[in-house]
Design a protein around this nucleic acid. Structure first.
Length: 394
RNA sequence: GCGCAGGUGACGGAGUGGUCAAUCGUAGCGCGCUGUAAACGCGCCGCCUUCGGGCUACACAGGUUCGAAUCCUGUCCUGCGCACCA
């Protein structure tokens, strides 16, 4: 395996926040040696989004350069819960939850990684076996002060919140994974910096060469401020329908478009630069949406998504494929229909939606919750700006 | 274990016997403007309602009172201090 210098530099820089030890990793990449690149998978999230993809895409780059991707499923550490960036103690997962999450996770990761060439390890396979002696040895790999100086712990301490022993130990456990899989490199988001560095320390403690670490920027979600995350709901899921994916990209604040291009598409950096200079924000963002959908769903789906967007949101027409909903009766009160369609969580919310003009049938706003609507089938009901339902009579 | 402080809606955080379904901010939702951007404006934001109102809520369980998120008792949970070094 011969790595040309350009590839090496691309791996080291594109969408990368920090590399430790940079010179060492550069040399390792240039050496032609096949590196073991570790990535820790959080078993709490069954659904992947573009934020996860940032790191996975980097991992894919390593794969393409001939290196070995090693996914470490944190099924054991998942029972502890990574304290990184957390403002409170996490509740542990059960074994069954972890299993179900991982199945779905790995399937989605396959859209980015070459799973045939990847190695998947579960850290329960060693943690469940190790004895207390090994635990004691591990527990002396780091110091208390070190951990307490972490910004996220400091914040919790200042805020008067609790931190459990287990959380304190988390970085060491994760570092131990690096020992067991003999990692040469470990990837993660910048929020993982501390844990990744702990991996180096633990490896040294166990008499092993230290891994290099590489951190990727955290991708902000649709709100443009908070980290993309499922629980906040500001994410673009890899499993989202093409139209949704495209639409969500369009709702990303302009300021983030360039970052998204760099981290979420395959366009060369130079081309991104010139596009950003020449294109208007809207056109630029459409291109971004197209590129992203294409990556996960193919060019055809990307075109369709873009056309659908033009049609529905630029021209205010009805989308192509609307969710068809069977309705029990041909005659229903607007309020009952809104609830039946799932347009609102409660009757009160549905009432509000209707009264405030956010509910219409074939383009005609219905403002009276009690209005009786008669359907023949095929009518299109719109709730808010984005949700459409096609009525089908049973 | 003892002492102190505290547990209020998605979150932050008011309220400390009636006028409290609970001020305010954030988030969210709808409408408007627009490029499903940003900024801004208006409205909404516990559940049900025949729109009169009804019901359930302020950790949990009891109690005092005509009346409690507000007072008392117990339980659970959280933080801080003390308890060893002094």
């Amino acid at each position: 395996m011969k790595a040309d210098q350009k590839t090496v530099e691309e791996i080291l820089s594109r969408g990368v926040e920090e590399v430790v030890d940079r010179a060492h990793l550069r040399a390792a990449l240039a050496s032609g040696r096949k590196l073991r690149v570790k990535f820790g998978v959080d078993p709490t999230s069954p659904d992947l989004h573009l934020g996860h993809a940032v790191v996975l895409r980097k991992l894919r780059e390593f794969q393409d350069a001939g290196h070995r991707a090693v996914l470490v499923v944190g099924d054991f550490t998942g029972m502890i819960g990574d304290p990184s960036g957390r403002s409170e103690t996490r509740k542990p997962l059960t074994a069954a939850e972890v299993r179900a999450n991982m199945k779905s996770y790995l399937a989605q990761a396959g859209k980015i990684l070459d799973m045939k060439k990847a190695e998947v390890a579960h850290n329960s396979s060693w943690f469940a076996k190790e004895g207390i002696t090994e635990f004691v040895r591990l527990a002396s790999a780091g110091t208390f002060q070190e951990v307490l100086h972490r910004a996220d712990f400091k914040k919790r301490i200042d805020a008067g919140q609790g931190i459990t022993f287990l959380e304190l130990l988390y970085p060491l456990f994760q570092g131990y994974d690096s020992v067991k899989v003999k990692a040469d490199v470990e990837l993660g988001g910048t929020d993982q910096t501390f844990n990744l560095l702990a991996g180096r320390r633990v490896q040294r403690h166990f008499g092993m060469p230290e891994q290099d670490i590489m951190t990727m920027p955290i991708l902000e979600g649709l709100d443009g401020v908070k980290k993309m995350s499922k629980s906040i709901g500001n994410y673009i899921g890899l499993a989202d329908k093409p139209a949704d994916m495209f639409g969500k990209v369009m709702s990303v604040p302009d300021a983030l478009v360039k970052k998204y291009f760099m981290l979420c598409t395959d366009l060369p950096s130079g081309e991104i630069e010139s596009l950003c200079r020449s294109e208007k924000p809207k056109a630029l963002k459409e291109r971004l949406g197209f590129e992203i959908v294409m990556l996960y769903r193919g060019e055809k789906a990307a075109r369709a998504a873009q056309e659908n967007f033009e049609k529905v949101f630029s021209r205010g027409e009805v989308p192509e494929d609307i969710q068809e909903v069977r309705v029990k009766d041909a005659k229903v009160a607007a309020l009952d229909l809104a609830v039946e369609l799932g347009a609102a969580k409660s009757r009160g919310e549905a009432r509000r939606l209707i009264e405030q003009g956010g509910f219409d049938v074939d383009g005609n706003a219905v403002k009276d919750p009690r209005a009786i609507l008669a359907f023949r089938g095929g009518e299109v009901v719109k709730a808010g700006k984005k949700r459409f339902f096609k009525i089908k009579i049973k």
